[in-house]
Design a protein around this nucleic acid. Structure first.
Lengths: 208, 208
DNA sequence: AACTTTTTAGCACAAACGTGCTGGAACCGT
DNA sequence: ACGGTTCCAGCACGTTTGTGCTAAAAAGTT
């Protein structure tokens, strides 16, 4: 039999090389040659594990989507295990929302890569499917969270979707600003914005 | 003397070709040859008006920034001319915030181009300056608007910046979702999100 | 009509890209 | 020891890119 190499682990190495390149030089520099160099391989070797450049990028996209969705699900189970309104619950919610933001090195790379792929998916049809999957996964968690936090339990369908979208937009906007204008955006401002938003979520059902 | 051509108008034609290409095929396809084709010119002609590809892109960026900043300033003077709290005032505020969103064809192209350049500026140093200018211009208008709308007139400096950032993040997030996931994002949801946000802005000063 | 200067068009080159293809290296089961 | 299979490396080809350079076309002034 042949040389035994853990193919899946090798693929993962290559994917992480892709992540590093996207984070530092952008998606357009993630060519086969650059990726191979970054991974310490030859172009032919990378192409042994990924049939084409498109397959490499699509797979990389799916990996980052899985990572983010996994973190969100995990953080949400923590939230579910706590009593609504308790201090621990509020902290867990903030932790959950913090998964969207580039608060440490690993989160920053993921946020950066995720953002790059989502924007690329607008143009490149091969990425469309993963982009839709990513949107569904994130919207599901945010939707459940909003349902849990809203005073009336999100009984009004119409208001639920608009509040979910409002939270999601704020999160993506914050993440984007933190990536693009880091000099104007501190972790403290992020936290303040999130807590302010949460107050507006649990507070006013008011008229409407 | 030579053939007389309105050089500035020609430059503007080329810039608009750049916009169309970015909106439909992304920034990475905005090469000199593609732009020349789209503008109905030869590569050499485009290069007569723009010394290099970088200069063309930087100038295009500055044009879209000027366009957006101009619309915002204009809409803000309308807001300033009305009494705070009146129905016309609220409508004018919504109109102002709507300038960020791809609500019609022209706004969509601008939002798309603006988004593309801002993300590219993370990587390409030539675009850095314009990105910073764009951020300052937009943050200034949003900051003044928040100061005008907040119940205490935005007297608490710290809360003012976090509320301004919160509004800005929501706007950019909404715009991004409208561009990337148009199928999940209707103009109605956009409006609902904005009105909901405005209610949270004028409502609770609360504790803190 | 001739001249001058702007405008337009295009060629040529090096660099980088994806990909089809070939050949050697490494390694496991026999 | 020795095949057979997998893994690794790289060449070669056709495209596309930015840019330096040349030269024809166009048009107002003399």
């Amino acid at each position: 039999m042949p040389k035994i190499v853990d193919a899946e682990a090798r693929r993962q190495d290559v994917v992480e090389a892709v992540f590093r390149i996207i984070a530092s030089d952008g998606l357009e520099r993630a060519s086969l040659r650059e990726v191979a160099d970054e991974a310490g391989l030859a172009v032919g070797s990378v192409r042994h594990y990924f049939a084409s450049s498109d397959e490499l990028l699509v797979h990389s996209f799916s990996v980052v989507v899985d990572r983010i969705a996994g973190r969100l699900e995990e953080a949400f189970t923590v939230v579910e295990s706590l009593a609504v309104g308790s201090a621990e619950h509020d902290a867990a919610v903030l932790t959950l929302l913090g998964q969207f933001l580039p608060l440490d090195e690993e989160l920053a790379v993921d946020a950066c890569v995720w953002m790059a792929f989502r924007h690329a998916a607008r143009i490149r049809p091969v990425l469309e499917q993963e982009a839709a999957r990513s949107h569904r996964a994130v919207a599901a968690v945010v939707g459940r969270l909003v349902m849990r936090l809203m005073p009336d339990g999100g009984s009004v369908q119409e208001r639920l979707v608009s509040e979910a979208e409002r939270l999601l937009a704020t999160l993506d906007g914050l993440s984007m600003h933190a990536l693009l204008q880091p000099e104007w955006m501190t972790a403290e401002v992020c936290r303040d914005v999130l807590t302010a938003h949460l107050e507006t979520l649990v507070a006013v059902p008011s008229n409407r």
